[in-house]
Design a protein around this nucleic acid. Structure first.
Lengths: 217, 217
DNA sequence: CGCACTCTTGACCGCACTCAACGTTGGTGG
DNA sequence: CCACCAACGTTGAGTGCGGTCAAGAGTGCG
């Protein structure tokens, strides 16, 4: 769109070319696609569902670094092993490529590589935004920030219903707090009339401007 | 080295080709190269010194997302404006390219684009590691983790002197804590005989294994 | 010498964590 | 069909880690 490398990787005829070579793979909700440290033999693109990327610690603590949606790529680590784990949030389907195949594809279709550069750059920018959230924002600001970005991603304004696809525990591991804190902050924002909570899986943003203000100072 | 896209971007003849087109730029210690929101007209590579990438908030809070060293690229945002600020930690020199020039260069030299993809991917992996640190680690673990990675980057083992190029305030903004906490944690690690602090700008790691243990649970 | 700045240390405080109880929901089997 | 149970979400009470505020030591510069 804007820049040379912002074009979607899987648009146009590229998708068909790739699909022909790919092997379909299904993962049920909660199942693990691969774990940190596994040999990074495959590259995946998501066709349906949602997966979470997880950085685990030995004692059980974990940080979710992102939620991946259809069209996103997984397993692009440039080492011999994956540097994060990937688990399905909901049942998901993916296309699997061997690493060698994928590298060959990049050489044959420079547009793929160009698209990947744009995509990885966008992910890096999102990661920097998340570092600000994790390093400097209060719990309330984190939850508000998350809801605002969810509005943007789902293209939803004030008054419409947002879908929370993931559990509180995933939200907590994504925002660097405990599940109890997620609950408390959601309740607080509801009591301040910025959101409504018709059920645990849905949020209605009643005042996006005030939520945006709550997201930053 | 390992993967197709891991090669240094500025190795070999590429550096000379690029340098011929670039405009030299000097920034003094503490000076700002560009700020978040400025029109992203230029791309830079560092030739000497060190810069910090900063995500600022309106109320003064800030998160440093990384320290950039010679050979690194700055300003690769794929939007019309920079998405972070860049300030010099120490006096630095850079090569400046106009965005248009740089895009043209990538088209002419596919190896540049390939190298960039590897570099951005590596940065993304580091960002995910940092998200784990900021979201889940204690202050003590954060400082220990930082020192361990500094050892790796400077290729230093137990007993050798590490150089802390940046101030406590930069360290604090990088690790998501206050300067007082940095001081307290360094003192604590010193009292536990993992490090020595000959002066504020240097650290001697006396037991890298124990420091690594302190870095993760 | 004096001033500004950085770093360190101490005392106190508050936000988020911990632990616990309870309500709700959805799946399972009697 | 409903009893049972496990998993999830919410709420409350108390605690502790790191933040806040303040003072003092060390350092470099004019």
């Amino acid at each position: 769109m804007r820049g040379v490398a912002l074009c979607g990787v899987l648009d146009h005829e590229g998708l068909q070319k790739l699909s022909a070579l790919a092997v379909d793979r299904r993962v049920g909700a909660g199942a693990t696609l691969f774990q940190e440290g596994d040999p990074a033999d495959d590259v995946f693109t998501i066709t349906s569902g949602m997966l979470k990327l997880i950085k685990p610690m030995r004692d059980g603590r974990r940080q979710i670094t992102g939620f991946m949606l259809p069209g996103d790529f997984l397993g692009l680590a440039f080492g011999r092993t994956y540097v994060y784990s990937a688990e399905a949030v909901s049942e998901s389907h993916l296309c699997r490529f061997s690493r060698a195949e994928f590298v060959a594809l990049m050489d044959r279709f420079p547009a793929l590589e160009k698209g990947l550069l744009g995509r990885v750059s966008t992910e890096l920018a999102a990661a920097q935004e998340q570092m600000l959230l994790l390093g400097r924002k209060t719990a309330r600001e984190r939850v508000a920030t998350f809801l605002v970005s969810l509005c943007r991603r789902q293209g939803v304004g004030s008054g419409q219903k947002l879908e929370l696809a993931m559990a509180r525990s995933d939200l907590a591991d994504y925002l660097g707090v405990r599940t109890e804190t997620i609950s408390r902050c959601l309740t607080a924002l509801r009591k301040e009339r910025m959101i409504e909570l018709p059920d645990p899986d849905h949020v209605v943003v009643t005042s996006l401007p005030r939520l945006e203000q709550a997201a930053e100072g």
